[in-house]
Simulated scan of single mutants.
Amino acid sequence: MTGDSNIEMAPGETPAPATLIDIVFPGDTNHHGTLFGGAGLALMDRIAFIVASRHGRVPFVTASCDRVDFRAPARIGHIVSFTGRPMKVGRRSMLVEVDMIAEDLTAGTNDLCTRGQFTMVAMPEVKDAGWSLPPLDGAASEQTEGDALRMVDIVFPDQANSSGAMFGGDALAHMTKAAFVAATRASRKTTVLASCQRIDFKHRITVGSIIELVARIAKTGRSSTTVEVELWSEDLVGTKRTLTARGVFIMVAVDRDNRPVQVFAA
């Protein structure tokens, strides 16, 4: 696990490629069993917003989106990954390209569903005529951490309590989802949560914060996978990145009858 619990970031520095990962459930699909196009576009816009906010550390709004053609569907049970990367930065606007990829976790196949470009406009609080966004830093955008799974999202008001802090249950749901994706990618079998160790939340996460889950495979058994998950939080327009919680999740591979199945060598 990462040792430092607080990291300072400068505007223009992106700590890792920004990817939002979700699972296609029946309520997200049309009568054909495929993801609604509008739902996919909404998540593409969300990751474009996260990429822009991480780069400029100021509020952004979406100005436009180029034509988006859906080349392949995302079906129930698929994992959909939305990866955004900055392509061009002007004084107060930037162009973010977003890929939407549907992944069949058990088959190990990936299909590019669509690609789009979003123009995001900065709305700085200080109306300084000389203000401009920082230039692109290609080296920073290529940072990786080995085989760790990384996924980002934003905390919305319906995920918070009356004091504006994220519900612990919602944070746990994000951490469990990261463990599920990491374990299923490793086993190529459907996995279920068997247990999780005690999780202490060291810092509150406020509405509007960016959260990032970092999941790593720590150990495998005959049918189980032990996944270590870190939950980081970032102020939307701040420079501090804080390790909020970490936990260990035991995921078990199961067959169609929900019985454990061996996937790893003894």
Rank of each mutant, 00 (worst) to 15 (best):
I210Y: 06
T191D: 06
V152L: 06
A171R: 06
D235A: 09
D170S: 10
A39S: 12
L112V: 07
I217P: 04
C196W: 01
G56H: 00
F82G: 02
H32W: 03
I250W: 05
M44Q: 10
T220Q: 14
R198A: 14
I217N: 11
R246K: 13
G56M: 08
V89N: 05
R222K: 14
P11E: 09
T19K: 08
V98G: 05
F70W: 12
D128S: 09
T83N: 01
N30Q: 06
V227E: 11
T176E: 12
D235V: 03
D170I: 15
A218W: 07
G3S: 06
Q143A: 13
A194I: 03
A140I: 09
F156K: 03
G84T: 10
R256E: 15
E145R: 11
P26S: 00
G84N: 04
V263A: 09
W131A: 04
D153L: 01
M175K: 11
H32I: 01
F249K: 05
D128F: 03
T29G: 03
C65F: 03
A42D: 08
I250T: 15
T29F: 01
T220D: 09
M166Q: 01
I205T: 15
T114P: 00
K219H: 15
A148T: 14
L112G: 03
H174A: 13
A63T: 07
S163F: 12
V155A: 05
P11L: 05
A52Q: 05
T242R: 14
D128C: 02
L112I: 04
R85F: 03
T176Q: 10
S132A: 12
E234Y: 09
A139I: 13
F201D: 12
E228A: 11
P86M: 08
L105A: 15
D235L: 07
G138H: 11
A52D: 02
L136V: 12
L149I: 14
T220G: 10
T29P: 01
E8M: 03
G33P: 00
L133E: 07
H31G: 00
G40I: 00
R256F: 11
V227C: 07
I23D: 05
S162E: 13
D45F: 00
A173D: 12
R246D: 10
A182T: 15
L41C: 01
I101S: 05
C65W: 00
V214R: 12
M87D: 13
M87L: 12
M9T: 07
R85M: 12
L95I: 14
